[in-house]
C-alpha cells in the first residue's frame, strides 16, 4: 500500500544523504547554509566517535590523523560497522607510508576480530622497515600476535 510512497521517499532520502555525506548536489528546496553546517557537524561527530573508538590514534598517528580524517570523511560515507569500522577504513584508506608498527598492529588486531569463524592467519608489512606483523585468531578471538624479525 505504501510502495509508491516508499519509492518517492527513498529518492528524496538518497538525494539528501548524497549531499550530506558523499559530495552530492544540494537537493532543491533545502537551505544551502543549513546543509553545509549539517555536513560539517556530521563529519565532526564521526571524528569524535572514531577518536573514542580508537583511543590509540592520537599516540600512534599523532594529531595529524584528525586533519586527515576530515578529508577522508568528505568523500567516504560512514560504513555499517560504526566508529570502529570507520576508523579501520580510514587507516586502510590512508595507507600512510610512515605507519608505525603500532598502527599496523592496531589494524591487524581489528582484522582478526572481524575475521570469519575458525583459524585465521593475518599478516601486515610495515613499509620501509621490512618487518612483518603476524596474527593468529580462532573464532574471532586473538590467539597470538608477533613481529618478524623480532
Amino acid at each position: 500500500m505504501t510502495d509508491s510512497l516508499r519509492i518517492r521517499l527513498a529518492q528524496e532520502q538518497q538525494a539528501l544523504l548524497n549531499a550530506l555525506i558523499a559530495e552530492g548536489a544540494c537537493p532543491p528546496g533545502y537551505e544551502s547554509d543549513a546543509m553545509a553546517l549539517t555536513r560539517q557537524s556530521l563529519i565532526s561527530k564521526r571524528l569524535r566517535e572514531v577518536g573514542i573508538a580508537w583511543p590509540m590514534f592520537d599516540s600512534i598517528l599523532t594529531t595529524e590523523w584528525r586533519k586527515q580524517f576530515q578529508s577522508f570523511a568528505q568523500t567516504n560515507p560512514p560504513p555499517k560497522g560504526g566508529p570502529i569500522e570507520d576508523g579501520y577504513c580510514f587507516l586502510a584508506n590512508w595507507n600512510h607510508r610512515s605507519f608505525t608498527l603500532a598502527a599496523q598492529k592496531a589494524m591487524l588486531n581489528h582484522e582478526l576480530k572481524r575475521s570469519s569463524e575458525g583459524w585465521i592467519l593475518v599478516f601486515r608489512r610495515t613499509p620501509g622497515l621490512w618487518r612483518l606483523v603476524i596474527g593468529l585468531a580462532y573464532n574471532k578471538r586473538i590467539v597470538l600476535v608477533f613481529t618478524l624479525p623480532w
Binding site: A10, L17, P77, P78
Partner: peptide
C-alpha cells in the same frame, strides 16, 4: 531516517512531515 540505498548516515536525519511520510 539513518540510511538510504544501503548507505549509513551515522546520524539521525529529518523527514518531511506530510501525509506520505506519515503513512510509511
Amino acid at each position: 531516517f539513518v540510511r538510504a540505498n544501503g548507505i549509513e548516515s551515522g546520524h539521525l536525519l529529518p523527514v518531511p512531515r506530510n501525509k506520505g511520510t506519515l503513512a510509511v
